[in-house]
Computed example of a mutant assay.
Amino acid sequence: MSWLYLGIAVLFEVAVGIAASKAQGFTQLWWTIGTLVSGAIATFFLSLALLTFDVGVGYAIWTSVAGVGIVIVGALFLDQRLDWKKGLGIAVVIGGVIGLQLSGAA
């Protein structure tokens, strides 16, 4: 169940990143509200996942997978460029997440 909670937390953290970019420094009310609500939901589900995961491992997986998700969403829907350097960075992050999971931390 902790993986499900972590997955939900990641999805809402991706929403935080997208909404925050649209909030324009919290000058756009609805995007600001979306940022804050998504952040609260993401944090809630992360806290549930951390009942099982070691805090360092769970938090590292959450932030890194969400970061990769935001890059991918940006490339697919926000006309942001995805070049080989970003691709390499994504591969390194995924390798790190796999390494954390192989450490037997959850």
Rank of each mutant, 00 (worst) to 15 (best):
residue 74 G to R: 00
residue 5 Y to E: 05
residue 71 V to Y: 13
residue 81 R to E: 13
residue 34 G to V: 08
residue 62 W to F: 11
residue 12 F to E: 00
residue 86 K to I: 10
residue 30 W to E: 09
residue 14 V to P: 00
residue 92 V to S: 14
residue 36 L to T: 03
residue 17 G to D: 05
residue 21 S to D: 05
residue 59 Y to D: 10
residue 36 L to I: 13
residue 6 L to Y: 01
residue 70 I to Q: 04
residue 46 L to T: 02
residue 7 G to W: 00
residue 39 G to N: 07
residue 95 G to D: 15
residue 31 W to R: 06
residue 33 I to S: 08
residue 86 K to W: 12
residue 58 G to Y: 00
residue 102 L to I: 11
residue 38 S to F: 04
residue 6 L to E: 01
residue 43 T to V: 09
residue 10 V to Y: 00
residue 29 L to I: 12
residue 35 T to D: 02
residue 98 I to S: 13
residue 40 A to H: 12
residue 54 D to T: 14
residue 11 L to Q: 03
residue 48 L to Y: 10
residue 24 Q to G: 10
residue 98 I to P: 08
residue 5 Y to S: 12
residue 64 S to Y: 03
residue 49 A to P: 02
residue 22 K to F: 15
residue 69 G to W: 06
residue 87 G to F: 14
residue 25 G to P: 11
residue 92 V to C: 12
residue 83 D to E: 13
residue 81 R to I: 11
residue 84 W to G: 03
residue 63 T to N: 13
residue 5 Y to F: 10
residue 96 G to H: 02
residue 100 L to E: 08
residue 65 V to M: 11
residue 32 T to F: 04
residue 61 I to E: 04
residue 26 F to D: 02
residue 74 G to E: 01
residue 39 G to K: 01
residue 68 V to H: 01
residue 1 M to F: 09
residue 4 L to S: 12
residue 15 A to L: 11
residue 57 V to N: 10
residue 79 D to Y: 13
residue 74 G to M: 03
residue 59 Y to L: 03
residue 17 G to W: 03
residue 31 W to L: 11
residue 25 G to N: 04
residue 83 D to F: 14
residue 85 K to H: 14
residue 18 I to R: 02
residue 76 L to Q: 09
residue 60 A to Q: 05
residue 55 V to E: 13
residue 38 S to W: 02
residue 102 L to W: 07
residue 3 W to N: 14
residue 66 A to C: 09
residue 13 E to T: 08
residue 31 W to K: 12
residue 76 L to K: 10
residue 20 A to Y: 12
residue 67 G to R: 01
residue 89 G to P: 05
residue 41 I to W: 02
residue 75 A to R: 06
residue 81 R to K: 15
residue 23 A to P: 13
residue 25 G to C: 05
residue 94 I to V: 12
residue 55 V to W: 12
residue 41 I to F: 06
residue 8 I to L: 09
residue 33 I to E: 04
residue 41 I to E: 00
residue 14 V to Q: 01
residue 3 W to A: 14
residue 95 G to V: 11
residue 39 G to Q: 04
residue 60 A to H: 05
residue 32 T to I: 11
residue 32 T to K: 07
residue 11 L to P: 05
residue 97 V to C: 09
residue 104 G to V: 00
residue 27 T to S: 09
residue 35 T to S: 09
residue 58 G to V: 01
residue 75 A to I: 09
residue 5 Y to W: 08
residue 29 L to Y: 12
residue 49 A to K: 00
residue 53 F to V: 03
residue 7 G to D: 06
residue 17 G to E: 06
residue 96 G to C: 06
residue 40 A to P: 09
residue 81 R to D: 04
residue 43 T to E: 06
residue 57 V to W: 00
residue 75 A to Y: 15
residue 69 G to R: 03
residue 93 V to P: 13
residue 9 A to D: 06
residue 92 V to P: 07
residue 41 I to T: 06
residue 54 D to R: 10
